[in-house]
Amino acid sequence: MKNKSIEIVKFNGEIEEFKVEKLKTSLRRSKASESEIDEIVEHIMPTLYDGMPSKEIYKKAFSQLKKHNRTSASKYSLKRAILDLGPTGYPFEQLVSALLKHHGYRTQVGIIMQGECVTHEVDVLAEKDGNTYTVECKFHSDPRAVSNVKVPLYINSRFLDIQNSWNSDPAKTSHLKQGWLVTNTRFSKDAIDYSQCVGLQLLSWDYPENNGIKQNVDKFALYPITTLTTLTKHEKHLLIEKNIILTKELYESSFLLDKIGVSSVRKNRVLSEIKKLCNL
């Protein structure tokens, strides 16, 4: 096994050689200890086979990590947890709004705005230091989805229509400065190049480098409730229907766990997991 290379199938269908160090790096990002990582890798290595989907490796790693360290398992599953916020994009818009608030912006979600030509529904309107920003959120349930150049082209044209109307209105007390485009997956190179050229701010799972959604969620502990390992998928959806998106929101409104039928014993486990995950 050590001498024979194994080829695996990535989420996007590409074939690549399995690298044990890549698996270890992804586990380290979850803050798992080196001893935990070694045990997980030792468990997974004998199960590898040519053509194995990377998704299957992820599931095995997550399952083992959950046995060793639930907090690390929650962090390890963050990308999947954001995908699980769907099928609508509204919970993702709430997450983006919370992220902007932690950067000092005042935000509103789901705003109808008048453009010079037509009206537009803006996902998030953000204001800071006398400047206003329109933020469009493109949520995908498919991890392979890539936003190509057509998306920022469309978003920028909408922004310009709103900007022309806003900045010519003497009743407005702030300047509409810039448009933002946020996605939970990735942007194509053309999308990034075009956005940089016209001044559209982009944010994705891993863009800008070292300052993408993942890094921001970890930095501010803005973990969605879908990361929790102590709740069932059905319970998570019930809470999302009650507009509880973040684990911190659930901690502050823990009575909702009683309302959806979570026992007192399990409720304590859920709250304990949130405390450890968010350092409360």
Rank of each mutant, 00 (worst) to 15 (best):
Q163P: 00
N164P: 06
N164L: 11
W166A: 15
N167H: 04
S168R: 08
S168P: 00
D169M: 01
P170F: 02
A171F: 10
K172S: 07
K172R: 01
K172E: 14
T173Q: 10
S174T: 07
K177D: 09
K177S: 10
K177A: 12
K177I: 04
Q178A: 06
G179K: 02
L181V: 10
V182I: 12
V182P: 13
T185S: 06
T185I: 07
T185M: 00
R186G: 15
F187E: 14
F187R: 07
S188T: 01
K189F: 14
D193K: 04
D193T: 10
Y194H: 06
S195F: 12
Q196C: 15
C197W: 01
C197Q: 04
C197D: 10
G199F: 03
L200I: 08
L200P: 09
Q201Y: 13
Q201N: 14
L202V: 13
L202A: 15
L202K: 09
L202E: 15
L202G: 14
L203T: 11
S204Y: 09
W205Y: 09
D206S: 06
D206Y: 04
Y207C: 13
Y207K: 02
Y207Q: 11
P208G: 06
E209T: 07
E209Q: 02
E209I: 00
N210C: 03
N210M: 05
N211F: 01
N211M: 02
N211L: 01
N211R: 01
G212L: 05
G212N: 05
G212K: 01
I213M: 15
I213P: 10
K214H: 12
Q215D: 14
N216H: 15
V217G: 06
D218Q: 06
K219Q: 15
